[in-house]
Structure formats: C-alpha cells, structure tokens
Nucleic acid binder design. Structure first.
Lengths: 192, 192
DNA sequence: CCTTTTCTGAAACGTTTGATTCAGAATAAA
DNA sequence: TTTATTCTGAATCAAACGTTTCAGAAAAGG
C-alpha cells in the first residue's frame, strides 16, 4: 500500500556505531550520526527512534558481534586451552590495533551508571563472555591441560575482568609490548 | 591595589570534580559546574579558564589525592606485604562504596584518546601507581614475604591494570561479593 | 578619605544541540 | 492508472550549549 524504507537499517546502525565508538554518547551529535549514516534525521526518528534508542541499538549490535565470535570459538574442536590462548592473543591484537579502544567498556563507564537499558545489555554481554571462558576452562580441565583448585566460575570472572584494564593501559601508554608481556604472564599463569 | 578573589579556588575545584566525576566531561554542562561551584561563569573564566582547563585541573586534583595516599602508605614501617594487602582491601571498599566509579578511568576512556593533556596527567598517575606497587613488591621480596621469578616491573604493571577491570564489573553487576572474591584470589596469588 | 584596580552578577552572545514539521516524492496495492 | 499510504529532505523549532560582555560592587594602597 505504500513506500518502503529506502536505507538499510543494519548498515546505518553499523555506521552510527563507529561514531559512538569514537566520540562516546554525549560527544557524538545527531548531525555527526546522521551524516555518517547518510540519512536525514526525520528518517532516523521515523524508523529507529531518538538518540538514546540509536545508542542502545549500536551497543546491542556491538555485543551481538562479540557473541558470534565466542560461539564460533566454542564450536572449535581443537584443544580448549589452545582456543583460549588464541582468544587472548586475538584480544591483545585488537587492543593494540583498535584506535578507539572498546565500545563496551567506554559505554559501561559513560552510560551504564545512568542508563539501565545500556547496563542490562552490557551485563548480559559480560555474563556471556564469562560463560564462554567458563566453558573453555571446564573443557581444558577435562582434557587435562589445566589443573586448578579454583572454581571455573571464579577464574572466568577474574580472567574476564583482567584484560579490561589492559585497554586503559594501552590508551595511556600506547605501548604494545607492555600489553604483550602482561598477556604472556597471564597465559603462563593459566598453565599452572 | 584592588579586590581579592572571593571564592576559594581549591574548594571550587573539589566541587567541580564531583560533577565531572558523576556526569563525565561532555555530560556536565557549564551550568551544572558553576551551580555546584557556587560561582558565576565570569569568575570561572577570569580565574581558572574554560571548560577543558577546569576539567584538566579536576583530573589533576583527583590524581594528587591518590598520590598523597600512596605516599602515606609507602612511609609506613609495617611489613610491605601487609601494606599491600591493606591497600587492595581499601581499593575494593572504594569500588563498592563509590557510586560514580573512578574518575581517572572514566576520564581515560572518555577524554584521554582526544585530549593530550588529560592523557599525560593520567599516564603520570598510572606510572606513579606502578612505582608505588613496585616499591612495595621490592620490599616484600627483600623481607622474604614473597618469592617470585617475575620482575617487580611486570608484576606492578600487571597488578595495577588488574583491578581497573573490577570497576567495570561492579558497574555492570553491582555485586560486592564478586569483587571481594576476586580480591581474595588476587591476594592469594601474590603470596605464591 | 579617594583612587585605582579587580572581581562579581546578570544578561546576552552566536552556535549547536536533539527533535519536529510538512510538502512533495515514491511506491505498493487496487 | 488511480488511490492510499509512507518515506524523504530541507527547513526549522525551542532549548541548551560554552563563552563573553560590561556596569557596578568591592576593597587594597595611598
């Protein structure tokens, strides 16, 4: 009966995500966003909604991408410890390569204290990340690659929060070797 | 020959710091700030400067307070390991008690990527924090309380970035027990 | 006291903000 | 093709933004 939406919503969210990622929620203006998304603000308000709704969708999109990555890694049939070590090395590479750090952490510190929806998304993301680690640890123990008296729950929780600090370190020191050494020490610790 | 400044600059900075701490740089408006500081914007611009300058001063003030705390703890004559453990427990208490998390971390993620002055202040703060830990570790080893094959440099760096992640965890999960358990595990690790 | 310099408070600056309006183009269904 | 509906783009909204202005109050030095 009528006209269809002209722009690709998924692509637009992707582009908006990059803007929020770089500038933060308050630092990104609607003009920044609509320019990057290549749509008019009326189209934005007719389809997605206001700035907060757009931000929520972007954060959700970001965590969706991570979830996909975790699922792929979990599906691997290689030894769990190998998968875990590779994941850590990959995380380090991202910390070093990504100029704008991590959207999830930035959003947590800027928005999760005041926006309950953002907090819920990031909490779910964090819990999924821990479940991913827990599962790998459980497997690695079963495969005899790791022996520990600590519970996989505690270790997963601990590991997950450990490399968050690496992001901040890299912002301040911009020193890849620093991060790599910490990761090296971290991996060495797991083996014990 | 003339009138003196009416307001106490140190007190005003302290009040502005609390606003930035809660709302972030972009989230805090000049009206928020001048209202909290109980001064007129003309006074602000005549004495301190613009918003960025005020923010820099607030972050500097925040890191100055931390530095004082570290110096006091370093001056203690009690066993170094004891001082270290107490410091960690104190850090945990702050994470749990402080509703607005940590200004230094928030500023790092929001501003340090785009504002070189903020980055420099936070980098110096981070380095001082590491030196504090390094010194405690060095003493603890000398006192025979710790034995490790790792360098104090690496360990200090690693420790320092470890509890940054705890802040994010607490924002998302608001779970004091989670943090306490991680701290417990962390302290246990040091002893080994 | 008077003079000189400085600080304060209220008002306003131009700009940018997030958000809305609406005429007209576009298109799916009848 | 017509009709009914929806989307788009440009213009615009009021509010809030960071910042500046300036008259007048304040006070230290002579």
């Amino acid at each position: 009966m009528a006209r269809n939406v002209e722009f690709n919503e998924a692509e637009a969210i992707q582009k908006a995500m990059r803007v929020f990622w770089e500038k933060g929620y308050h630092g990104a203006s609607l003009r920044d966003l609509t320019t990057a998304m290549q749509i008019n603000s009326s189209s934005l308000y007719n389809t997605i909604g206001d700035k907060e709704e757009l931000f929520v969708r972007c954060v959700q999109h970001y965590t969706d991408l991570r979830k996909q990555d975790w699922q792929l890694r979990l599906a691997s049939e290689r030894p769990a410890l190998e998968v875990l070590v590779e994941y850590i090395q990959c995380a380090v590479d991202i910390i070093i390569a990504e100029e704008n750090s991590c959207l999830a952490i930035k959003a947590a510190f800027e928005m999760a204290t005041s926006d309950e929806r953002v907090r819920a998304i990031l909490k779910a993301d964090s819990e999924y990340g821990e479940a991913f680690l827990r599962e790998l640890l459980r497997k690695a123990v079963a495969q005899g690659a790791i022996q520990t008296e600590e519970s996989p729950e505690l270790l997963a929780d601990y590991f997950n929060s450990t490399w968050k600090g690496w992001h901040e370190s890299y912002i301040l020191h911009k020193d890849p070797i620093r991060i790599k050494k910490m990761a090296q020490y971290f991996i060495k610790q797991i083996g014990k």
